[in-house]
Amino acid sequence: MTQKLEWRFVNKLGRVVLNFFKATGELGLFTMETVYHCMTPPFYGKAFLRQLVEIGFYSLPVVALTTLFSGMVIALQTYSGFSSISAEGAVAMVVLISVTRELAPVMAGLMVAGRIGAAMAAEIGTMRVTEQIDALSTLSTNPYKYLIAPRIVAGIVMLPVLVLIGDIIGICGGYMIGVSKLDFNATTYLTNTWEYLKPMDIISGLVKASVFGFIITLMGCYNGFHSQGGAQGVGQATTNAVVSASILILIFNYILTEIFFTI
């Protein structure tokens, strides 16, 4: 009986490990094929432009709101913490660094993962289960080129744009709280912000955003493309796309931070 139980455990563990390697291998192959098709013609310009609008324009309100409130909260928190050691003057710098290096890219990434990653997985997943992707192939159109490549490239291009706008709005949020609630002098706050502004802070945030854009669109497309069954399969693909993209964003945020600021 005990042996049976042990075997069952080994069996289950083996299946989990095998499934993990199978999924990793499939994702690896999908990524390679996607990168290849992103770089080789034909290119579908219209599909790319549609995705730019979908990812960039329609995500702008949610990214603007999250970065605005993040900047405001950081200003308040920094002030309440730093005032005890009489370092209130550092509020502008802390807002600047936190927003540009971390908050704008990560918040924008997570918000876009929820909005765009889910939408992509649902759309492509529905196309898969209703044979629309097979139909594309029979119409001599490569689904990787028509469906996946425009989304991936649009994600890589648009996320940095969103983050750049998020940077400005986040810093404005800090400025608004600093001037209206914490009684900072407007000119001094702006001068402090400008003084501490380093190109590396902005660049690191934008590079992170590009990587996050790739991750979000890749996970959305991968999960949608491999969805099976009917409505349940599409629902599962959508959940997987958002969860996996969010986790990967946090992991890669750490890795990129380490690369940029400790090496």
Binding site: M127, T130, E131, Q132, D134, A135, L136
Partner: peptide, 8 residues
Amino acid sequence: FQSGALFD
């Protein structure tokens, strides 16, 4: 296709 598979 059986379901038509039209692009919606």
